[in-house]
């Protein structure tokens, strides 16, 4: 199921789990609007080692369809650029947002 198909299905307090477990609220709360620098993956250089996925604190790295290559989820990436720092082959470069 694609993320846009997820819906919040709760109607009353009784439908909810006791804690915020998979409430689906993150599908409507996009949290990347304050990103200043956008990490962009250069697929010519990327070796799909997944180190960016391991380090991303969000996590905003996923395997995209259909080629299952590493990609950045720009709805949630806040531009901390840890992936840029950690990439062993310098395959992630940045661009300023709003340019």
């Amino acid at each position: 199921m694609g993320k846009d198909e997820k819906k919040i299905v709760f109607k009353t307090v009784h439908d909810l789990p006791p804690m915020a477990m998979s409430l689906g609220t993150m599908w409507v709360n996009k949290t990347a609007s304050w990103r200043n620098l956008k990490p962009i993956i250069d697929y010519e250089k990327c070796i799909d080692c997944m180190i960016c996925w391991k380090y991303c604190p969000e996590p905003a790295i996923f395997l995209r369809d259909p080629d299952e290559r590493v990609a950045v989820d720009y709805d949630y990436c806040k531009g901390c650029l840890i992936c840029v720092e950690e990439c062993p082959v310098d395959a992630i470069y940045t661009e300023e947002e709003g340019k």
């Binding site: 919040i8 709760f10 804690m19 915020a20 477990m21 409430l23 609220t25 993150m26």
Partner: peptide, 10 residues
């Protein structure tokens, strides 16, 4: 997902 951002609705 645990403890994700939950808006005023819930």
């Amino acid at each position: 997902a645990f403890g994700g951002l939950t808006n005023p609705e819930w």
